[in-house]
């Protein structure tokens, strides 16, 4: 197991050691709102450095889910976790991409990523992610929106020249999804038999969304974090009803804002 990992581990050595500290310093200095303002006026270099790491606010919020309330997290612990997450993404992506090359494919799919995690020893992640993927695909409405949104934004961001390349690929990607429907039709039925709640429509989805926010909020504050991210990073916590209305009416804009900030 160590042999395939060592070559990949050596690759990050080529990264300049100064960049992480600068990026971390940039992330830490401004508050969330200030960060947004700073990001808008930041130079390309700063944006690139910031983009190399996950936002420290999101990382801290996730860390607190598994820690007792009295636990504190030092800044250097947050920084090292940010670095580890980026390394994890690059590590798994590299393995997934190798599989794509072997099979003469150009698109890295979610199956490739799950396969790469299994190959790299993250066996515990495979089953939860498989369940997550199935749940995501069962939710066809959200899945459809999810597929359309990022793809469209990616195309627009890259310019008109990439649209012809991306659209056919998107169509190609949709085809397997259509083929999988007969197979998925069994699992949703089982799911329906187990849970009294049928597949949610957009409106009912938002209701369940609100319910989830309330229920999950009691256990872990990650939903609040989600609301914050959805609201564009503002620290003001709006009521759940407002959150629902905001999410229902502003689904495309948050991604637009995210694209703008990046």
């Amino acid at each position: 197991m160590n042999n395939p990992q060592n070559p990949k581990a050596s690759a990050p050595c080529t990264l300049p050691p100064e960049l992480p500290k600068e990026a971390v310093a940039t992330d830490e200095a401004p508050p969330p709102m200030g960060n947004n303002n700073n990001t808008e006026s930041a130079t390309a270099t700063m944006v690139r450095e910031q983009d190399r790491l996950m936002p420290v606010a999101n990382v801290s919020r996730i860390m607190r889910q598994v820690l007792p309330p009295y636990a504190k997290i030092s800044d250097d612990a947050k920084e090292v976790i940010q670095e580890c997450v980026s390394e994890f993404i690059s590590f798994v992506t590299g393995e997934a991409n190798e599989r794509c090359h072997t099979e003469r494919r150009k698109t890295v799919t979610s199956e490739d990523i799950v396969w790469a995690m299994s190959r790299l020893g993250f066996d515990d992640y495979v089953a939860p992610l498989g369940a997550f993927l199935q749940r995501m695909r069962d939710d066809s409405d959200h899945g459809g929106e999810e597929r359309g949104g990022p793809a469209g934004r990616g195309g627009s961001r890259r310019g008109s020249s990439s649209l012809p390349l991306h659209c056919p690929q998107q169509m190609h990607h949709l085809h397997p999804a259509v083929c999988r429907r007969p197979h998925q039709s069994v699992s949703p039925a089982a799911g329906y038999a187990v849970r009294p709640v049928p597949r949610p429509m957009p409106a009912s989805g938002y209701r369940m969304q609100g319910g989830d926010h309330r229920s999950v909020g009691g256990v872990a504050p990650c939903s609040y974090g989600g609301a914050l991210v959805q609201a564009g990073g503002t620290q003001h916590v709006v009521g759940f009803h407002d959150d629902e209305a905001s999410s229902s009416s502003e689904n495309p804009p948050p991604e637009g804002r995210a694209a703008g900030s990046n």
């Binding site: 983009d51 919020r61 959200h142 689904n251």
Partner: peptide, 21 residues
């Protein structure tokens, strides 16, 4: 995961994940 019903709100920004990839 069983309780997840909203797949549009993520705790980590997708655009940044894509950039790292």
């Amino acid at each position: 995961i069983e309780a997840t019903t909203d797949f549009k709100n993520h705790n980590l920004p997708l655009a940044r994940i894509k950039k790292i990839m």
